Every structure is written in C-alpha cells, then in structure tokens.
Amino acid sequence: MTVKKQLSPSDFFTVPAASEGRKLFLALPDGSETDQYLTVLGIDSPAAQQALKHASQIIRDAAETGDSKAQSTDIGERADLMFRASLVIGWSFEAKCSPDAVAELLRNNPQLAIAVEQFAADRRRFYGGKPARS
C-alpha cells in the first residue's frame, strides 16, 4: 500500500524557485556545447512578471500614440528584447553581467533570445524533474 504525502499550500508555491534562477548552458553557433551559461529567472518570479508588465505597457503606449506600423514593430521588438534580457540575472562570462550587456548578446543572437524566454517559461526546469542542459 502506498502512503500519500499530505500536501500543504506551500507545496504549490512557484515564486521562490523561479526567483533563484536556473542555468541555461550555451552552445556556440556551430552547435558545440560549452560550459558557459546564463542564469535565467523563471516566468513566475516577481522580476519577470514586472518586466512583462513593463514591456506590455510600452507596446500599449505605442499603439495609443498612433505610431506608424514600422515604428510600432520597432518598439515591439525593443520591448521583447528588454523583457528577455531582464530574465537573465547572471552569467559565467568574465565581463560584468549588466542589462545592456545581456541585451547586446541577445540582440546579436536572436535564437538565444528566444531560448531564454522558452527556458524561463519551462516550469519543469524550476519546479521538479531532472535539470536539463540546453
């Protein structure tokens, strides 16, 4: 007979693990694995939620001002980049990890920018299961 563990409300908390961040290991453009990594927040972290709200507000403001479609697209792309960069709270490079440095990395590697957002949204990486190398 299997004994079921009695769960408590704290068993459903997501903010603590999401706020710690997890390592997203990087590969070179040719696909070679490296030991370099970014530390990425989970989407449930307060910082990620705030960044998402900020990016959404930038896009809404642009739409309300009646900017041209090209301007709106540019503003949307910058808001996306800012959001994705805000998910990165550290890295293994010797250079200082700053929002501008992270944004430069992600701007120059669009696939990595997408990977950061997908990693942050992958709840398995933060709340259980075996951590995966990406």
Score class of each variant (00 low, 15 high):
L112T: 11
A55H: 01
V40K: 06
F83L: 05
A47I: 02
A113H: 05
T39H: 07
R123S: 15
L26A: 07
I89E: 01
L52D: 14
R125Y: 10
Y37M: 14
L24S: 00
D80M: 11
P99V: 02
A103M: 07
F126P: 02
D67L: 14
K130A: 15
R123H: 09
A18E: 00
C97F: 10
Q71N: 14
A85D: 05
E33F: 13
P46D: 15
R60E: 14
Q118W: 07
I43D: 11
V88G: 01
A79L: 02
G76F: 04
P29E: 02
W91E: 03
S98Y: 05
C97K: 04
N109R: 13
R60M: 12
K4N: 13
S32D: 08
R78P: 08
S92W: 00
I59F: 03
A70K: 15
T73P: 07
T39V: 12
T2K: 14
A79F: 01
A27H: 12
R124H: 09
E64M: 09
V116Q: 03
L28I: 14
M82W: 04
R125W: 06
R133S: 11
A51S: 07
I114F: 09
K5P: 07
T65Y: 10
A48H: 01
Q71C: 07
A18D: 07
R125N: 12
A120W: 08
G42H: 02
E104R: 15
M82D: 13
L112H: 04
G66P: 02
K53H: 12
A47F: 08
L41R: 01
L28A: 13
A48W: 01
V40I: 10
R133Y: 05
R124L: 09
S72W: 04
A132T: 13
R84Y: 13
I43L: 05
V102T: 14
S134P: 15
D61R: 02
Q118V: 11
D122N: 13
F126I: 07
G128E: 08
F119M: 08
D61S: 05
S134N: 15
Q111V: 06
E64F: 05
T14A: 06
E77T: 03
P99D: 03
K53Q: 11
L81K: 02
S72L: 15
T73R: 14
A70E: 15
P46M: 06
L38M: 09
A27W: 06
A47Y: 01
F25T: 08
A120P: 03
L87V: 01
A63W: 04
F126L: 00
Q49S: 08
A18P: 01
K23G: 14
G129W: 12
Q36Y: 10
F13K: 10
T2R: 15
F126T: 00
V3T: 14
N108Y: 03
A17E: 04
G66S: 02
Q71T: 09
L87E: 00
P99K: 12
K69V: 12
N108W: 12
K53C: 06
H54C: 03
Q118I: 11
E33R: 14
A115F: 00
D30V: 05
Q111K: 09
E77G: 13
